[in-house]
């Protein structure tokens, strides 16, 4: 025995390391061929192989005596129970128990973030959403206090020409064009009535550009 122990693992070619797998026939072809040839001439490995055979036999016989529980019906019952359970039960069954500390921390952090976002939306501390914007085609417009003209341009007039006309009278578009193509133009608030009349007269002379012009509310 002592001699065997001394020899154990001392094959000069290190082939004894492969012997357990030579015995269970799982070595790759090349290795298997090599070890078979080696075993013919290596007394250390021959001795070691016999020892491994005894060890394996005893190991297997020791294992065989353990009674095996029959759990298949329980497994099937458990599977069916889980499959019949609701979607929530299925989801929770995927969560490992007990929950790893890192996962628990992450879930808690996510929960806090969600609570925080809901609170921000509810309290609106920066006044988000209170400013509003309107398009020129909107139903009403925030404007100044100057007099307003209602102008209908000719059908084929391009936008550039419209802007030139408005620029000439220092007006600002405060509404329009409506579906009918009508613009509401605001003039400067300090304009006197005669100046306004003058503007209207000059606009009416531009017949190739303007079809209709009138002071709002007249």
């Amino acid at each position: 025995m002592k001699q065997e122990q001394e020899n154990h693992g001392q094959c000069p070619e290190g082939m004894d390391l492969l012997l357990p797998w030579h015995l269970n026939h799982t070595l790759e072809k090349g290795e298997e061929k090599k070890i078979k040839i080696h075993l013919l001439n290596c007394p250390i490995c021959q001795q070691e192989l016999e020892r491994i055979k005894g060890e394996q036999g005893l190991y297997q016989s020791a294992a065989e005596e353990i009674p095996i529980p029959q759990t298949f019906p329980h497994l099937i019952a458990e599977i069916e129970k889980r499959e019949q359970g609701g979607i929530w039960q299925r989801i929770t069954s995927l969560i490992p128990r007990p929950l790893p500390p890192l996962a628990a921390t992450l879930i808690a952090a996510q929960f806090l973030v969600i609570i925080g976002l809901v609170a921000i939306l509810a309290l609106n501390p920066w006044g988000a959403g209170e400013r509003f914007y309107r398009t020129l085609s909107g139903p009403s417009i925030v404007g100044g206090k100057g007099p307003r003209l209602t102008i209908l341009f000719q059908d084929r007039v391009q936008e550039k020409a419209v802007r030139e006309v408005i620029g000439e009278i220092n007006g600002t578009i405060v509404n329009g064009p409506t579906p009918m193509g009508i613009y509401t133009i605001e003039l400067r608030s300090e304009m006197k009535p005669e100046e306004i009349q003058h503007v209207i007269s000059s606009l009416r002379q531009k017949r190739d550009t303007i079809r209709f012009v009138e002071i709002e509310g007249s």
Binding site: P20, W21, N24, T26, L27, E55, Q56, Q60, A63
Partner: peptide
């Protein structure tokens, strides 16, 4: 895994 299950390296 080697002796009882007979698995390869």
């Amino acid at each position: 895994l080697t002796y009882y299950q007979g698995l390869s390296i």
